[in-house]
Design a protein around this nucleic acid. Structure first.
Lengths: 190, 190
DNA sequence: CAACTACTATACCGAACGGTATAGTAGTTG
DNA sequence: CAACTACTATACCGTTCGGTATAGTAGTTG
């Protein structure tokens, strides 16, 4: 990876995450990365290509980590805790990438970036859903609700991360994680 | 409300919701609304002003409905069920407006539309949090976790609605609502 | 009818948009 | 050294961006 190429990737990730894909111009990116437009178009072909390159670069390790965290080893409490911790961790050492994921998660299906990102989200859902499918072998009451559990867990996680990225709450709090996991598994009544 | 004014509002809501604020041009709006640009700028002053007018118009009844649903009358199960049903209902008869809310909820704090929308989200959080504050008088174990409950409930709701708006699931399902409420209150183990 | 307010059409503004044709430099390979 | 590949700078393309100056129409009020 040449210097200019990675500089463009970094600058673009930051700008996209902070201002949104459509609000950032190619000109703005190349100025901040201290390169010229032909350089950008040489490496990435188009603005959309640049966006997809960012996704590809970052999503590999993301899926790797989530896959590792969501494995089922007989204790669903541990697995869910690992998943929550993993997402919180990623959102903290890759905040710009997580911003990008969050703002494109609910982005309109007709937007330029949708098809690029929807696959990444889908794969994450699959990983989490598989955890609950495997766990339902030990917990019969879970049967048939795997999708529901995956949806609600991911929804809770992303809502917390969203609030954290906007400075409303702090995630550096082991107690918070255990309370979230506890609520998810046992509800708010127990 | 004159005809042209409401036509612009409707067209703009649809376009913003489907393509995103930045991706939609003023020209595009006026053509689809069959008016000219000075007409739009006469009523709304700017593109941002148009966006805010849409929010103002729609948010009144939204907050009204959520406020009504989230009242605590001694039975937290009923209240939470009402809240979930209300949000699901709004997302179905005002899908474009809900799309707009969802995609701006995680939008970057530096975007043009952020300050316009963040207040609306905050007011909703307050309503839901107040429900849990009042309920904690009857349920001591809830004390001090009101914020957590508001966050997780809203996160679950919006994740389901997001999946529904993208065609992945159906919300027309009383059983789904009761299962969501049940999971929220009692966890996935019971 | 005259003055006035509310609204809308024509035509245009400078700036920024995504993208490219052309030419060149630097390093590698035969 | 010659041919070639990889990369980058200058300058420019047509189009669209958000926004406006000007003029005019239609309806109301005195």
């Amino acid at each position: 990876m040449t210097n200019n190429q990675s500089k463009i990737l970094n600058v673009a990730l930051n700008l996209f995450a902070l201002h949104g894909y459509d609000a950032v111009g190619v000109q703005q990116i190349v100025v901040k990365a201290d390169v010229t437009k032909p350089t950008l178009y040489h490496y990435f072909g188009s603005k959309k290509g640049l966006f997809e390159s960012i996704l590809v670069e970052k999503s590999v390790s993301l899926l790797q980590e989530v896959s590792e965290a969501s494995r089922y080893d007989g204790n669903i409490v541990y697995s869910v805790t690992r998943v929550v911790n993993t997402y919180f961790s990623i959102s903290q050492y890759q905040p710009m990438f997580y911003r990008l994921m969050l703002q494109t998660w609910f982005s309109p299906a007709t937007s330029e970036t949708y098809e690029s990102i929807s696959n990444l989200h889908y794969q994450q859902f699959e990983l989490i859903e598989r955890l609950f499918i495997e766990a339902s072998a030990d917990h019969g009451n879970m049967k048939g609700r795997h999708r529901q559990y995956a949806v609600s867990l991911r929804g809770m996680i992303d809502t917390y991360i969203g609030l954290s990225l906007q400075g409303f709450i702090e995630l550096n709090n082991d107690d918070l994680v255990s309370r979230i996991v506890h609520q998810f598994l046992y509800g708010i009544f127990s």
